[in-house]
Amino acid sequence: MEHSSSVLRVENLSVGYDGKVILRNLNFSVGTGEIVVLLGSSGCGKSTLLRHLIGLLPPLSGRILFGDRVFADAQNPGSEEERDNVLRRIGVMFQSGALFGAMTLLENVLLPIREFTDLPHDLAVICAEMKLDSVGLLEYAHYFPSEISGGMQKRAAIARAIALDPKILFLDEPSAGLDPVTSDALDRLILSIRGKYGTSVVMVSHELASIFSIADRAIFLDKKTGGILDEGSPESLRDRSVHPEVAAFFNRGNSQKGR
């Protein structure tokens, strides 16, 4: 897949918290409409990196750019307003879905539309209904999150994340806790959103099936060196990577499949 321009660019980024550096000097970019998956063993810093990319943690060094806008810079923190402007252009789905329990699905999706646009109420509702329709939950618009299944909650969380037509979507382990059929449906939904809106996706995942079916590129993070160990399409990493950790990661999946 050809990716003309980069939506997200990470330059010399060091990530960590409480004075502890977990990953250092990372450099990578994500193109328009590209789906990139962050891989690595447990505790290697994938989720921490994701938290930096969505602005929940400040970078220890280096910077993060969305398009040509600087989102986070360790040297020059920049204004809150500028940061908020960027945050409106990105969508995030947390592992648990993080839907607001006291609101219906429609109200959950309406929240960012109401907060960040001047759309009149009737149009905002139509907009939210369209988003729920695109994840197949229009019929459940008036349900509360506690009244629907885990897979539906994740789809609703995606609907909320794409409410403002973000250029890039961050997904933290979208398949975690889902059965293979639901997980497959979620993968297809992510692909359809990319197809429809041209959204780039950065996701953390351990699900090999999901990685192979949707990811254009995988970035394998290394716990020992605290950097990027290998990078490329999932197939090329599986077949041609010279690093034993990468081979072990993908071959474990093969042995499982062979059973």
Partner: peptide, 11 residues
């Protein structure tokens, strides 16, 4: 048009 535009035309 984006989603807001589509929502308006739909409305």
């Amino acid at each position: 048009y984006d989603s807001a535009g589509l929502a308006m035309v739909s409305g």
